[in-house]
């Protein structure tokens, strides 16, 4: 079982909508993969299912050969699009929390990154700006030595400096046993750091290929291709 994530015939149907239709994917380790698609294309549904936050209607997903559950949650580090931390907690308490629940959490790594951003251990999330909050969440997620990092819109709504910081953190964290799955709209900003991209539309995979292959074959950037593919 070499691939990290495998989905077979994954379907998710809501009352009047087919959020995911027959999704078959195989994602290898050691890659930075972009999950791209317009709103409603099924990106968040797919991510929720991988994380065990939602149950598929049919089909299955295996992470490291296992169904979503306690064991897979141990090896997945997830950064959702929203602030998912209790805003009343201080940074120090957040570190305690992550240390307690995640064996693979590297506190020292997190402390260094926080220090570099001049974030004090006693700061409460509530007092931070949106950009700083996002960086804190990112630091917590990236300080885990997980096998799969799932980042949902990590650079949406932050200033360019923060964006660069985030991208460099992702690259700097790379190791060939782990995979990063990045879901985003802002393709041109992250294109260069992706190995491969998955295009989702109406719950189905339009295509899944490596960035350089696409550029070579199509003679254009992923961003341009995306605009063409989704032009309705």
């Amino acid at each position: 079982m070499s691939c990290l994530i495998e989905t077979r015939g994954l379907n998710k149907k809501f009352k009047n909508k087919m959020a995911l239709g027959d999704v078959n994917l195989q994602l290898e380790r050691g890659r930075i993969i972009g999950l791209l698609g317009p709103n409603g294309s099924g990106k968040s549904t797919l991510i929720k299912i991988i994380n065990g936050l939602m149950v598929p209607t049919s089909g299955e997903v295996l992470i490291n050969g296992q169904k979503p559950g306690v064991e897979t949650k141990k090896i997945i580090s997830y950064l959702p699009e929203r602030t998912y931390l209790n805003e009343w907690m201080r940074v120090r308490e957040l570190l305690d929390y992550f240390c307690d629940f995640y064996e693979d959490f590297r506190r020292d790594r997190a402390e260094v990154m926080l220090k570099n951003l001049n974030i004090s251990m006693d700061d409460k999330l509530k007092t931070m700006s949106k950009g700083t909050k996002e960086k804190v969440q990112l630091i917590l997620v990236m300080s885990r030595e997980a096998q799969l990092y799932i980042l949902d819109e990590p650079i949406g709504g932050v200033d360019p400096a923060a964006r660069d910081y985030i991208l460099k953190t992702i690259i700097g964290n790379y190791n060939e046993n782990a995979t990063v799955l990045l879901s985003t709209h802002l393709i041109s900003d992250i294109e260069n750091i992706l190995d491969e991209v998955i295009f989702l539309q109406y719950g189905q995979i339009r295509f899944h290929a490596s960035v350089d292959d696409i550029r070579m074959k199509e003679g254009k950037s992923i961003d341009q291709l995306f605009r063409e593919v989704y032009r309705c």
Partner: peptide
């Protein structure tokens, strides 16, 4: 708040049943 709002994204991805 802890289970069914944004915080739920953390609670339900912790490695606990």
């Amino acid at each position: 708040k802890n289970m069914y709002t944004d915080e739920g994204y953390l609670s339900f991805t912790l490695p606990v049943k």
